[in-house]
C-alpha cells in the first residue's frame, strides 16, 4: 500500500464555544477517492476547509504532503469580471504559465467538460448553473492536481450531466492517480465514485462509520451502485446519523415497487382501487 499523504489525527474544531468537529481521524493516499457523507451541518465543509488550509487546525494534527492541491467549492466561485476561459486558466496564471499556453490548456479542458468556444468566451453570469459548475471543475482539473478537494460539487447538475462529469472525474483520477476527498450528502454519488465512504454524524461532527468498496469505481454498474447504496442505508449507524427512523425499510419483507400503484391506476382502468386513487390525481 502507498503511504498516506494526507493525515488527520484527532482533529477538532470549534467556532467560538460551539464544537463542530471532534476527534477526526482520516488518511488519504495518492490515487485514493474518499467520500465524506453526512447530514447538513455536521462539519463536512469545515473539515474540507481545514484540509485546504483555509482554516487553521485548532487541535489535533493535520499533515498534508500533497504538492498540488486544488479545490472545487460548493458554489462555482468564478470571477465575474473574467471570461470563462480566463477563469479556468486562473490557477495556471498564478503558477506563471505563459498566456498562450495556459489559454490553450483551458480550452482543452473546457472542451473535455463540455464547454464550447462560445461558452468559454462569455462571462460566467451568462452561463447556466450547470455550466458554471463545469467551469469550476475545469479550473481545478487544469492544474493537474495530485489532490482534489470537492465540496458537494455536482449538486446543481441534472443526472445526465452528473453522470458525464463522474466519468470525466474518474478518467482523470485513474490517468494521473489523483487523490480525491469529496463531500456529498448524496449517498449514491459517494458509492459510485469512492473507494472508501466515511459517514459523519453531527453535534459535534465525527466519523461514525467506514465503508470500503472493493470493486474499482469504473467497473461499477448502476445496479451495483443502487444495491450497495440500499445496503448502506440499512446500516443502523448510518440511519441514525442522517436522523432516519431506526426501523429500516428492511422490516417490510414483501415490498412492491414505489411506482407500481400509480401506474396501475392509469394503466388498468378496471382496477377496483382506481376511482379512489383517481380523485387524488384529478386536479
Amino acid at each position: 500500500m502507498n503511504q498516506a499523504l494526507l493525515n488527520l489525527h484527532d482533529v477538532g474544531h470549534a467556532y467560538g464555544l460551539k464544537s463542530v468537529l471532534d476527534g477526526i481521524d482520516l488518511s488519504l493516499e495518492a490515487g485514493q477517492v474518499l467520500a465524506l457523507v453526512g447530514p447538513s451541518g455536521c462539519g463536512k465543509t469545515t473539515l474540507l476547509h481545514l484540509c485546504a488550509g483555509l482554516l487553521n487546525c485548532q487541535s489535533g494534527r493535520l499533515d498534508n504532503h500533497f504538492v498540488r492541491p486544488a479545490v472545487m467549492f460548493q458554489q462555482p466561485r468564478l470571477l465575474p469580471w473574467k471570461t470563462t476561459r480566463d477563469n479556468i486558466a486562473l490557477g495556471l496564471k498564478a503558477a506563471g504559465i505563459p498566456r498562450r499556453e495556459r489559454l490553450a490548456n483551458a480550452e482543452r479542458i473546457g472542451a473535455a467538460v463540455g464547454l464550447d468556444r462560445l461558452a468559454l468566451a462569455q462571462f460566467p453570469h451568462l452561463l447556466s448553473g450547470g455550466m458554471q459548475s463545469r467551469a469550476a471543475l475545469a479550473r481545478a482539473l487544469v492544474l493537474e492536481p495530485d489532490l482534489l478537494l470537492m465540496d458537494e460539487p455536482f449538486s446543481a447538475l441534472d443526472i445526465g450531466l452528473k453522470a458525464q462529469l463522474h466519468r470525466l472525474l474518474l478518467d482523470e483520477q485513474a490517468a494521473r492517480s489523483l487523490a480525491v476527498l469529496m463531500i456529498t450528502h448524496d449517498l449514491m454519488e459517494a458509492v459510485r465514485l469512492a473507494d472508501t465512504v466515511l459517514v459523519m454524524a453531527a453535534e459535534p461532527g465525527r466519523i461514525v462509520h467506514r465503508f470500503d468498496l472493493n470493486i474499482p469505481a469504473r467497473q461499477r454498474d448502476d445496479a451495483l451502485v443502487h444495491q450497495t447504496t440500499a445496503e448502506l442505508l440499512q446500516n443502523a449507524t448510518v440511519r441514525a446519523s442522517f436522523g432516519l427512523s431506526a426501523a429500516g425499510a428492511g422490516d417490510c419483507p414483501h415490498r412492491p415497487s414505489m411506482l407500481s400503484p400509480g401506474m396501475a391506476s392509469f394503466g388498468a382502468p378496471a382496477n377496483q382501487a382506481a376511482p379512489a386513487q383517481r380523485k387524488g390525481f384529478g386536479c
Binding site: H49, G53, L54, P69, F73, R77, G91, A94, R139, L143
Partner: peptide, 16 residues
C-alpha cells in the same frame, strides 16, 4: 470572502 478563499486556494500571488 468566498472569492478571497478561492484566490488563496488557487495560490494567487500578491500582484494577481
Amino acid at each position: 470572502h468566498q472569492l478571497k478563499d478561492m484566490a488563496s486556494v488557487f495560490r494567487l500571488p500578491a500582484h494577481m
